[in-house]
Amino acid sequence: MNSAVVLAERFRVPLCLALVFGVWQGVHGLAIVPDKFFPSIPAILAAFWQMLTDGSVLVAWTTTFLRALIGLVVAATLGVALAILSDLSPVLSRGIRYVSDVLQPIPPAAFVPMAVFMLGLGVKLYAFVIVLVTVWPTYLNGVAALQSVSPVQVNTGRMFGLSRSQLLWQIRLPAALPQIFTGIRYAATISLIAVIVSEMLAGRDGIGFMIYKKVNALRTPEVFGLMFLVAFSGSALNALVAVLRRSMTAWHMGMMERRE
């Protein structure tokens, strides 16, 4: 192990960016795809800067990010609540399982047209689509996590006199939390996808709608710029989840690092 590796480790983000941009510029230079459809990085940056200075992109981004964030919070809360209910009642668990088996494979885009008819083009539509596709990873991970809590831990709690609800709050939920967060992290990405797709298909604002408009106007540099912004938003959402996870399950992260 030498200093080159350490350096690469420290500067991994700029290095990766440089690599991506380098390849991008290389491909652009070969002119396989017409410049109109595959703009250069400077052209994209210029177009993005333009949208940034006239304020349009910031408004759209705030709208989109808040939708994804609120959707995630609602869906995660609902998912964990449903997982707890399922854990208490096997009958309910089977019921929800049938519903999730039917609904989970449907991509968000397929919900939108139906939701437009049912709910119109407003907040209700977003709430419906986002929650319906985002709730499953948290729910399914929550159920699996609660089921896989070690019987030794549960017996330890029982032996020290915990009631059923105390077992849930003091033993099973803390033990399940790391895996619940795996679900929430996955849900964060899905929430953003659902927002962008809804905005593209049925929106009047937000980044998704903006992409749709720019595509129709053949403004490719802007489209690519917005695409990069979406990627950044996904990372930001993940980072928020990671902060929450670190504060709530620091013990688990410490334990995992130690095992390596």
Binding site: S150, Q153, N155, M255
Partner: peptide, 9 residues
Amino acid sequence: DYSRSLLPW
């Protein structure tokens, strides 16, 4: 199974 019986959190 003491390693599981002790609560890791």
